[in-house]
Each structure stands twice: as C-alpha cells, then as structure tokens.
Design a protein around this nucleic acid. Structure first.
Lengths: 337, 337
DNA sequence: CTGTTAGCGCTTTCAT
DNA sequence: ATGAAAGCGCTAACAG
C-alpha cells in the first residue's frame, strides 16, 4: 500500500501540511513557485487525495445516490445513463441501489444514506411503496431529493415525470380511432403513480366512448408468469381487440401471449405500449408505442438535483419543481432507425 | 442538519465515546445493560453512523466500483444487476462509472479510485483501450480488481468471461450447417478481447469450409449510423447470406439494414447475434442467437472480487482465476417465454 | 505568502 | 467493563 498522503508531500518539501493542501487546491494565497513544486511532486509520486478524509472534513462528498426498483427494465438503464452524464459533467460520483420492488429494502437504503453519505438522492419508488413514512426523515433533515418517474405525491419534493395522463389519453384516443371496440387496460400496481395517471388518462379518453364499445381492467403484478397466464386467459375469454399495457414489461408479455393464443398483431389485437426507441423498433412494427424519453428524464432529474445542491448554501431552493418532459406518441412504423 | 453522532449519544448517556462505539458494534466487552441503553437511544434518535468517518479510520469502505463502457447496451445492465445482487448480499455499496468507450475517461476514473475510495474494482475495458499503462498502478498498489467480458490479457488479474471462442465456433458451424455460403463477420473493434476471440472462433470454424464458400471481414465501430451505411452497402454489393455480428448492437443494425435493403430474414440472409434473452425473444424469431449469461457473469465477477477481499488479510489470493461461464447457443425459435 | 492548530466522526490501543 | 487519548487524511480558521 504505497498510499502517498499530503503529509508526506509536506515533509518531503519542507512545507506545512496546510500549505501543500492549499497549493493542491490552487488557492490564490500560495506563490506560483510553491504550487509548481507541490504539484510536480504530487504528480511524480502519483498522489491521490483521500476522498473519505476530505468528505469527512467538508461534510460533503460530491456523491449522489440513485435508488431505482430494478435495472433489468430497459427504461431505468437509460435513465441512469442520463443521470451519469450530468454527474460526470459536474464531477460527481454516483452510488447505485436497487430496491427490487421491495419497500423494506428501500427503507434500509434511505436509512443508510441518512448518515450523510451522499449530498443528494435521485429516486424512483418501488411498486409496493404504500407508505412514505420512511422518507420523512429525508425531508426533515433537508437532504436534497428528487423523485422521477415513479414519484411521491404526498411529499413536498421536486419531481420529474413524463406527462402520463395526457399521453395515455392521446394514445387511447388513437386506439379508438383505428377502430378498437374492446380495450383492456393492464394495470401493474395501484400504488404506482405512473399507473394511476395512465389509467386516469385512459379513463378520460373513453368517457365519451361510442356505443357498443367496452373496456376492462386487468390487474397484473410483478410475476411475469402469472401475468402471462392472466393475459392468455383474457385473450381467450374476452377477445379484446386492443390492449393498453401500463408498462413495457406487460406489453412484451402480451406480445408473447398473443403468439401463444394464436392471435396476430395488429390484425386481431392492437397493443399499446410505453416503451423506448430500441424496444419499439424491435417489436412488431405495428405496435403503437408511447416513447418515453428515459435518457432525458435522467438528465432532467439530475439537473434539478444539482440545482438544489448549488443553491444549498442559503438552505433555500424552490420546492416542487415539476418538469413534464414532452412525450412522443407515434406508431412505431414511423420510427426512424 | 439534525445529524446525531456517537458523541451526542455518549454525552446523553454519560458514557465515554469509546464505550458507545463498542456497544454499537456489539463488542463482547460491554455489559448487556449498557448495550441495551445505547442501542435504545440510538434507535430513538435515529442515529446513523457516518460512513466517511469510519471508512477513513478503518481504511476500508465496504464499497466497490464498477467501471463499464456504457449501459445503454443491454448486456451491461444485466451484469450490473448481477453485481448488485451479490454486493447487496455482502452489504457492500457500489459506485458506478461509465467510460463511454473513452480510454481517457477510463484512466481518470482509475486514477481517482487509486486514492483508496473503494475496496475493489470490477471492470470491463473500453473498445478503444489500446494500452494498459493506466492500469498498472492498480496492480502495484494491490488494489483488488477483476475484469469481466472485455478483459485485459496483459495484466495478471482475475478475469471472468464467456467462452467466446468456442461459442463463436459453434455458432458459425451452425450457420454453415443451415446452408450459408457467404458469411460476413462484423467486427466492432480490434482492441476488444471479445471481438478477437469471437473472430478467432469464426475463423477456426471456416478453416475447412466447403469449396465455393466465401467469407469477409467488415470493420465497424461505435458510430451506429456509419455502421448502418456500411452494412447496407455490404448487403447490396456482396449479398451475403449470413451475417455474424460480433456484438448485439451490430446485429440490430444489421436487422434494420436488411429492412432498408428489402432483404427478408432469415430467408435471404441469416443473422447471428450475441444477445440476451429478452432482445432475442423480440427479434425476428429466426435469428440465431448466442445468449450471453450476463446476469450470471455479473454475479461471478463480483463473487471472485469478494473472494479476494476476504482473503485480503494475508495479502495472498489466487491470481488469474478464470471462470468461463457456460454459453447457450440456440435458435431463438426454441426460446421459452 | 506560509505555519500552527483544531477538529470532521469514528475506531482502537492502552490504561484503569 | 469502561474511559482517555491518539489519530485516519484532510480543510479551515487564525496567526504571523
């Protein structure tokens, strides 16, 4: 362990520790020559500042935490990408935590972060989060937090979401326009803000539905196999000609279920899906897709957080910044490569 | 900032700081009653240990770094998932860094980590990594590191890879078996170990190719648009009946290029791709896919690293552990949902 | 411009 | 079983 410290540099150069420290942080009150000497030796010995020491001292770590339900979901990997892009730009480090849709785990992570490990938190709630009790200490302590996608309505924190209501409404309209008479909405979790808003938009669109039109709600969950069975059954028993999948995962399961039951997409049944470009372009080109700007959402959320971090000195920042990213609704046949 | 420290607990309970510390870490030399009192108050005040202080003192942080080229690539999101699963199990935290296929960035990250920020590193090299100079200090300093997927052959460090040579060989055989007479290999980067090994396997398989069979090498890079043009041109000019894409991204680009040129898959041209289950099941069912056990690779790599971490006391651990995950080669028509 | 000093919050000898 | 004290490596008053 050849760890070289500021102290060694000081001794070597016959300088005070503080002088070396200041020289390294390019303080204005250090002579050019000393700076020169210090940085030269630092480079030569491959000196690297100890992040833990300076974080402890400065009470800030240039580190943020990203808490997400899972990453196998393509959506979140794009979000992380966006977040990391901004963090890298700002010279911040990012710790990543997966809650695996488990509220217990979520609470544990939050609890640990309360110890001052990070300067701020970016978070998307798990589908099982029913109470926000475990999040209150974060607010009390004034630890900057921004929710994205799966937000927390009951807490007074900034959020970044897509316009789920409006895009769901428009997308449902689209399904009706192309002649769907029997549309099933696949719900992923009643505790999820995105699901609620999308369902809300769905309901709004079908309010003045033409006579003879029917809709139905199908509760799903995180058990893909179970969902698969349920959707197959739905297709067989009810024969809907339209499916509104609240999340991409359910759209893909529906896609497979149609194959199983022997239905052709989009002739027999049209599937509407929230998705990203890549998946959309791989799925059957006749799917209607609401493309989520995942990467941009990550960037936006991070930007809001850093905004808070920078404003932090006066302990005053705007609460409740809501950024509604624009949504693109399109039939994926139109998607460029 | 209501941050409660060990010191406050001590004062509150009229105990020495050290006693409180020991009580919290459940030391055997503290009376049950004191422990009881301490933990009770700690819980009541929602005490949370300062990670930076203890890391500084203990010289280890229970944190590892994951360095990867990008995450938009589905492969790496699965790997991270696997890594995080193990880390969570071991109560470790994970810092994530993207190099965006940029060697400069890679060097910077490594440099920073050298300051003792993490206990170990899990890393996959960028495609532009030509020299491994920036990695040598890691070895010298004895900082545990494990390479996965895109490994570093010139360094004496443990690696976890899939059996690229063998699976590429088998897959190429498969293409020949189904009648391909003109196969193009799409190379992503000559600096990438995976590409080299796959190409090697490809070449090995075609060594004793039947007369009349032709193959060609197409150099690609990270510029998707450029690759797209190149592949379209290839399809038009050479009309290959088989494509071996060294990485998934190139398979998808080929997929789109075929559509552009008006070729039908798999009738006109067969595409062979390294991929994961989800993408494979979305792609045209007639693609031949080599499924990479990404999640398992993440878990394996992390397991090897933690093994090193645990053996670290004696500064002695086995070098050069090579785990070759089993590969599954199958035609995706056979893939279960 | 540079040095001295006092911690950040925690762990860990060494006493008692 | 508990306390006193030293210090991890660094920063930031406060002196000069």
């Amino acid at each position: 362990m050849s760890t070289v410290t500021i102290k060694m540099l000081a001794r070597e150069l016959n300088l005070a520790i503080s002088t070396v420290s200041r020289a390294l942080m390019d303080s204005y009150e250090i002579s050019p020559e000393t700076k020169q000497k210090v940085t030269a030796l630092a480079k030569q010995l491959n000196y690297q500042p100890n992040h833990y020491a300076s974080s402890l001292r400065k009470q800030r770590s240039k580190t943020i935490a990203v808490i997400i339900p899972e990453i196998s979901n393509n959506f979140f990997s794009h979000v992380i990408n966006g977040i990391e892009a901004i963090a890298q730009e700002k010279n911040y480090h990012v710790l990543i935590y997966f809650t695996h849709e488990n509220q217990q785990k979520e609470a544990e992570v939050i609890q640990h972060l309360l110890g001052g490990r990070v300067d701020g938190i970016l978070m998307s709630l798990t589908g099982t989060t029913s109470s926000t009790h475990h999040l209150e200490p974060v607010m009390e302590q004034g630890l900057p937090i921004v929710f994205f996608d799966r937000i927390c309505d009951t807490l007074n924190a900034p959020t970044v979401t897509t316009d789920d209501f409006e895009s769901a409404r428009q997308a449902t309209r689209h399904l009706m326009d192309v002649g769907c008479k029997k549309i099933a909405y696949l719900s992923i979790s009643p505790h999820l803000s995105i699901d609620c808003k999308r369902m809300h938009g769905f309901n709004h669109a079908i309010q003045d539905k033409p006579t003879g039109m029917r809709t139905m709600m199908i509760p799903c969950n995180n058990d893909t196999h179970q969902n698969y069975e349920r959707i197959c059954q739905l297709l067989r028993d009810e024969q809907p000609d339209g499916i509104f999948a609240s999340v991409e995962k359910l759209a893909i399961t529906s896609y497979h279920a149609c194959a199983e039951v022997g239905l052709s997409i989009p002739n027999d049944v049209k599937i509407l899906s929230f998705s990203n470009l890549e998946t959309a372009s791989l799925l059957n080109p006749s799917l209607t897709t609401i493309i989520q700007p995942a990467f941009d959402m990550g960037k936006s959320a991070a930007t809001v957080l850093f905004h808070m971090l920078e404003k932090r000195k006066g302990k005053q920042w705007e609460q409740n910044t809501v950024i509604k990213s624009n949504m693109i609704i399109r039939n994926s046949t139109q998607i460029a490569v």
